[in-house]
Design a protein around this nucleic acid. Structure first.
Lengths: 182, 182
DNA sequence: ATAATATCGAACAGCAAGTTCGGTAACAAA
DNA sequence: TTTGTTACCGAACTTGCTGTTCGATATTAT
C-alpha cells in the first residue's frame, strides 16, 4: 500500500480514536475528524464511505488483533499466547486493565456500549471452548447456545461493573468474581 | 391539559412508536414523525425540544407504567399486583410476551439496546429486594452492589436471548432458565 | 362573548454530509 | 532521471435535516 495512503489512514484512525474517548459517536462530525487528522475532506471519503464504516473498520482491526491472532504464524505473539498456563479470562482482564490497544479507554468512554457489543460478538467464539466452566452447576443442563451466550454475557457484565466502579479490584479478584457469578 | 395538546402529544407518541418498530432511532427524522402524526412542524417543537427528548419521555412513561405503579393508590392494578403469589420475574416474562405497552415490539426492533438499557435501569431498583435469590449459591459472598447488578444483568441477557431466538420457550420455562443461570 | 392559546403552514437560517474537479505533489518503475 | 500513475488538497457545491419565526386560524376555557 502506498505510503501516503497508510499515513492518511493511520492519521484518520488515530484522530477518530481520540475523539471517541471524549465525545459520543453520534455527535462526532467528519469535519472534526479531518481537522484533527489534518487531511482533506475528499481524502476522508476516498478511504471510508461514511463515519459508520470507519467505526466498523476500527472495531474490526481492534478485535481482530485481540481475538483472531491465535490463528497467525508462530512468530506473532497474541493475547492468548503470552502465558500459556493462565486462565484465558484472567488474561483478558489483565490486558484490558493494561489498556492494551487502547481498549480500556474506549470501553470507559460514553461509547462503551458500542465497543462492548463488538467485544461480546468476538467473545462468543471463544466461549464455545469454555463450556466446561459450567460443569457441576445448576446451569449445566441448559441448552448449549444458551450457555455459550450466558458465559459471554456474564463476562461482559462483570467487565462493565468493574470499569464502572473504577477498577478497584485486581484482575485476579475480578476473575474470581466472574467464576463465582457464573 | 388542553384537549388539543393531549391529542397532538398522543399522535406524536404513537407515530414515533410505529417508526421505532421499523427503523433505527438515529435515522428517524422529525419530518417523518410529524408527517405520520399529522401535526405541524412548529407543533412538534412546542412539545419536545428534540427527538432525543421525545425518546426520553417515551421511555419515562413506558417504564414508569410498568415499574413504578406499585407506589400508586390501591385502585390502580399494576404489573406486580395481578397475581400476588407468582414470582415477580415470571410476571415480567409473561407481560413482555403479551406485548403489554408495546414493550415486546420495541424490544424486538433494531432499537432494542436503547430500551433494554432503560429496562435494566428500572430493573435494578426491583432487584434490591431479590437478593435472597442468590442464597446458597457460590455468588452469595460477592459485594452487594455486584449482586444486584448481576441479577438484573442476567435477567436482561436471558430476555434478550429469549427474544432473539424467537420466544420458543414458555414464560415458565424461561423463568426456570433464568433461575438456573443465576 | 371574550381572551387566551394551540395549531397550522410556510418560509427561513444554520449546519453537516457527501460529491466534484482542477491543480499539485509524492510515488513506483523503467 | 524520466515518465506515467496515483493520492492528496482545497474549495465550491448540492442536498437534506434541524430548529426557529411569524402571521393567520381555529379551539378552548371562563
Amino acid at each position: 500500500m502506498d505510503r501516503r495512503q497508510r499515513k492518511s489512514r493511520e492519521a484518520i484512525f488515530k484522530a477518530f480514536e481520540e475523539l471517541l474517548k471524549k465525545r459520543d459517536f453520534a455527535h462526532i462530525t467528519v469535519g472534526e475528524i479531518i481537522e484533527k487528522a489534518d487531511v482533506g475532506r475528499a481524502t476522508f471519503y476516498a478511504h471510508f464511505e461514511t463515519k459508520e464504516f470507519l467505526l466498523k473498520e476500527l472495531c474490526g482491526e481492534l478485535f481482530c488483533h485481540i481475538f483472531d491472532a491465535e490463528e497467525n504464524e508462530h512468530n506473532h505473539r497474541h493475547i492468548f499466547e503470552c502465558k500459556g498456563e493462565e486462565p484465558v479470562f484472567l488474561h483478558l482482564f489483565k490486558h484490558i486493565r493494561n489498556n492494551d490497544n487502547n481498549l480500556l479507554s474506549l470501553l470507559s468512554s460514553s461509547n462503551n456500549e458500542i465497543f462492548l457489543g463488538y467485544f461480546k460478538e468476538n467473545l462468543i467464539k471463544l466461549c464455545e471452548s469454555q463450556l466446561d466452566l459450567l460443569k457441576g452447576r445448576s446451569a449445566e443442563k441448559l441448552p448449549e447456545d444458551f450457555k455459550i451466550n450466558h458465559i459471554a454475557s456474564v463476562f461482559v457484565e462483570v467487565l462493565k461493573w468493574w470499569i464502572d466502579t473504577g477498577l478497584k479490584e485486581s484482575p485476579e479478584t475480578i476473575t474470581e468474581y466472574f467464576y463465582m457469578a457464573l
